[in-house]
Design a protein around this nucleic acid. Structure first.
Lengths: 141, 141
DNA sequence: AGCAAATAGTTTGCGTGCAAACAATAATTG
DNA sequence: CAATTATTGTTTGCACGCAAACTATTTGCT
């Protein structure tokens, strides 16, 4: 058997690889002008903005240094701004711009659409079991 | 709710992110001297070597250009060699070296261990359902 | 045979991700 | 209060991953 999907490790990696590419394509087709990584950061900020880079990196599960680059690109796109924190000259507060707030529903729509296609034909139970499995993997590793 | 795992898209991405890092760590701890990406290529080659880069890229589900870089690193590690194909001066055959063949079981052991930890406490049915789900996502996207 | 089209593989540019090293600033502690 | 330690955020270097552009062949077609 030449097929490498007999390994669940590879299967997980390749499913995500496909998912990433598909998301990128959909963001592109719908002219959102953002990438999948930026989408996750925006999604996190839609829940709450105004906190520091370090706080955001924890909520995004990204390294601080990864977020620096993402912030640079989001700032260049004028979707986010770094605002000085009074009382701590090291830190910034990250705020969404009006442009970012305006595209909120479109971002959600892309995520919903990707999930819909990805999970098409699956029962609620199957989806719940899948999510449980992913949470479990995240927690254990 | 500030937690971003209410999105199954993000959940999938983050589970794989963790999985990737965990694999990297384990390869490192066991002094295999290879990275997760290289591991997948080796795994594919253990099934069959001697074919072209293009053939290998299809079996690995990677772009040709991605594989070029991976091959460069694997060749530098002396785990793989590009051999000229008689009759086609554009192509190479990719062969595993004796060193690569010698570490076969260790590579499998890492993959098995990661899968074991990742799926610890899950029933056969749960695992089968999870794999089915991932195959389905790969197929649909 | 000669030219166009296809194929094999590489290079370059960009986005994502971490680790390690770094600078600047705050907090702690002796 | 001065010195050490901790924290915040950035930079650099490396590993993926793809798209697009490129080179060198080979194949196909007239």
């Amino acid at each position: 058997m030449l097929e490498i999907f007999d390994s669940v490790c590879i299967l997980l990696a390749k499913a995500e690889q496909k998912h990433f590419q598909f998301t990128k394509k959909m963001l592109d087709e719908r002219r959102l002008g953002i990438t999948p990584g930026q989408m996750i950061v925006l999604y996190t900020l839609y829940k709450k903005d105004g906190a520091s880079i370090t706080d955001l990196s924890k909520r995004c599960y990204l390294d601080n240094s990864t977020l620096t680059g993402l912030m640079d690109r989001l700032e260049r796109l004028q979707l986010v701004s770094r605002v000085d924190v009074p009382g701590d000259r090291r830190a910034f507060s990250i705020f969404l711009t009006p442009q970012a707030l305006a595209m909120r529903e479109q971002v959600f729509a892309v995520m919903d659409k990707v999930a819909e296609i990805m999970l098409e034909g699956c029962s609620e139970q199957e989806i719940a079991a899948f999510e449980k499995m992913l949470r479990n993997i995240f927690a254990k590793l």
